[in-house]
């Protein structure tokens, strides 16, 4: 009688695989969590594969390679059995540098991702939930933060902060502060739509405390959006840091993929044809960004289930249209026979 039965087959049955999501609030696992995991598709598998391999390389690589700073007299040699990715102008092992640089970039990405997500969550979700003056103030603040340009700001900051104390955390903080606002606006819009749903009103009417309403009733429904914003923040941070480092404004005490490119450019790697020096870090950034983007697309499918079925839907629609055409053709043929 009702058409609910058609929807009852839970999509959970086909859900597999881990998801690259930030940790949710520490409530006990419920069946609800499973619906938040994206469906495993080839694209998601590639994305996860790339991200996991690169992350492992960033974590384990530095433990296995030698000192990346050691100077040898074998400058600018191509890939060989001894140096897998060749050496730099000053004879440093590019592969060792790549391992440490990947770790540095991942650190920046993770720190910025967490800080930016926390900031956007606070200003976006809490403001929208409270409404009224709080929301207006938070919203205004987000809008102001949104138009602060990251690059000029960091140039200004680098003018104030001496180079030796311009560490990884400083760069990460600046990147986080300039990148949370867009996510906050997205989260605010989502929260506003969830906040006005009856189940939020119902839980308030049953006497639930505000923080519990936010954390238990609203937040789970925002998790896919938050995860997607987190992944996006990580990509943006790694790219942003690489850009800053490339123009010489990176962190002074750590090596990242950006600083590697900076030194490669300073060492005229391009004009000397030393491709093994600048291609690996560039490729690493590109592949990591691609992996995260592929994961993000899969998360988008949870946020908008229509995307999930788009391809299947199209295929089925084509088949239906074909069958219908055949039917009318048969009908016309019968008509002609008569």
């Amino acid at each position: 009688m009702t058409n609910v039965t058609a929807q009852t087959q839970p999509a959970a049955a086909e859900l597999t695989g881990p998801a690259a999501e930030p940790d949710g609030p520490g409530t006990r696992a419920r069946p609800g969590w499973r619906s938040l995991l994206p469906t495993m598709t080839p694209w998601l598998a590639i994305g996860l594969g790339l991200v996991i391999v690169i992350t492992l390389f960033g974590i384990l690589g530095p433990l296995l390679v030698g000192d990346p700073q050691r100077i040898r007299d074998q400058g600018l040699t191509g890939p060989s059995a001894q140096f897998w990715l060749g050496t730099t102008q000053t004879g440093q092992d590019v592969f060792a540098q790549l391992a440490f640089a990947t770790r540095g970039s991942l650190e920046i990405g993770a720190i910025v991702g967490v800080i930016a997500t926390a900031l956007s969550g606070f200003f976006g979700i809490y403001g929208a939930y409270r409404g009224g003056v709080v929301d207006e103030a938070f919203s205004l603040f987000s809008n102001v933060a949104l138009v602060i340009p990251g690059l000029p700001l960091i140039i200004v900051i680098s003018g104030f902060v001496p180079r030796e104390s311009r560490g990884l955390w400083t760069i990460a903080l600046v990147l986080a502060v300039t990148s949370w606002a867009a996510s906050a606006r997205v989260l605010r819009a989502q929260t506003l739509s969830v906040r006005h749903r009856d189940y939020v009103a119902a839980s308030r009417a049953s006497g639930e405390k505000p923080w519990r309403v936010i954390v238990v009733e609203i937040l789970p429904n925002l998790l896919p959006v938050i995860a997607s914003q987190f992944v996006f923040a990580v990509i943006a941070a790694i790219l942003g840091e690489a850009g800053l480092a490339f123009i010489g404004l990176g962190a002074s005490n750590s090596s990242t993929l950006g600083t590697m490119l900076f030194y490669a450019q300073n060492g005229f790697a391009l004009s000397l044809g030393a491709w093994w020096w600048f291609v690996p870090p560039g490729l690493m950034i590109a592949l990591f960004g691609m992996g995260l983007s592929l994961i993000n697309f899969s998360i988008d499918e949870i946020i908008n289930p229509k995307l999930k079925n788009l391809r299947r839907h199209r295929r089925l629609a084509k088949r239906a249209a074909r069958l219908e055409r055949e039917l009318t053709r048969r009908g016309a043929a019968q008509e002609a026979d008569r």
């Binding site: 419920r30 839980s203 429904n221």
Partner: peptide, 25 residues
């Protein structure tokens, strides 16, 4: 004083089990 809402599709949180909805109050 408690309320029953108009739209049963909107008044239950899609994320939580039926048990959660009754256990919380």
């Amino acid at each position: 004083v408690q309320m029953v809402f108009q739209d049963p599709f909107a008044s239950l949180n899609p994320f939580h089990s039926i048990e959660h909805h009754i256990a919380r109050p």
